[in-house]
Structure formats: C-alpha cells, structure tokens
C-alpha cells in the first residue's frame, strides 16, 4: 500500500511553491518604468507613469479606479467580488503587473527604452 504521505512529498510541495512564486519574475522586463500599459476588454492603451492622478478603466463589471502617485500605481476601487487586485498593493518595477481578471483589466508597467517583456504582449494583442 502506498503511503499517504512520505517525506519526499515535502520536496514536491516546496518545489511547486517555489516554481509558482518565481514564475512572475520570468515575465519582468528591464529598465526604469515610465509608462503604464492598460489592457482591458476595450483594447489596449499606454499612458505615462509621470504625474500624480487617478483614472478609471471600464470593464464588464464596472469602473476600476487606479491611483498613480510618485511612480507607483495601485488599484483604489474595483467592482470585482474578490478585491484581490486591491490587495495586490502598489507596484513600481518594470514588468510588474496588477491584474483584475473578473473585470478584465490589466495594468503593466513598462519602460520606453527597452521592450523586453513588452514584445510578447504586442504579439498576442495584435
């Protein structure tokens, strides 16, 4: 009879957790972030990261409100049920992303000088 739990299982659990924690960093780019790529059900647009302000992005569920302050962005309010996007907090690094999948809004910080990580976005969204 196979055991329900063997010590080797801890290795599997550790490897799986590590893989999922490090997955996002494979999709990060280089350079200083200076613009925000907004991907939504309406399409894609790019806005500058400079200038403190708030803006909203419409999605199937309603308005997702984004705050831009000091080179960081975060989601202030969202109509989605889990509010996971708000709990993702602020981001400031190139290639880092806040996503609200239920409202189909994704915010990705990009650098104008380097396109690494940005090109695959274009390939899919064209």
């Amino acid at each position: 009879m196979r055991r329900s739990f063997s010590p080797l299982d801890l290795v599997v659990i550790g490897l799986a957790l590590a893989a999922f924690v490090f997955l996002p960093s494979f999709f990060r780019g280089e350079g200083v972030a200076d613009r925000i790529r907004i991907v939504s059900a309406e399409g894609e647009r790019i806005v500058p990261l400079a200038g403190d302000r708030e803006f909203s992005q419409k999605g199937p569920l309603g308005e997702t409100v984004v705050e831009v302050r000091g080179g960081q962005i975060r989601i202030l309010s969202s109509p989605c049920p889990s509010k996971l996007c708000i709990r993702m907090g602020s981001i400031s690094d190139t290639g880092s992303t806040i996503i609200c999948a239920p409202n189909r809004v994704a915010l990705r910080l990009e650098s104008g000088r380097t396109t690494s990580g940005g090109e695959d976005v274009d390939a899919y969204s064209r």
Binding site: A16, F20, V21, L23, I99, A101, V121
Partner: peptide, 27 residues
C-alpha cells in the same frame, strides 16, 4: 482569455491554492 503575460502575476496566489488543494485531494 487574458492574452497578456500579466496573468502570471497571479501565479503565487493560484499556485499556493493549488498546492493546498493538492494536499487535501492527496489525503
């Protein structure tokens, strides 16, 4: 569906949930 690599920023959350449910389903 999402059509951007942005989905991978959810990997830590989704992955931890998967590992926990994997432990439960294994037992």
């Amino acid at each position: 569906f999402i059509k951007t690599p942005a989905i991978w920023s959810l990997a830590p959350v989704v992955g931890s949930a998967a590992v926990i449910s994997g432990i439960i389903t294994g037992l």
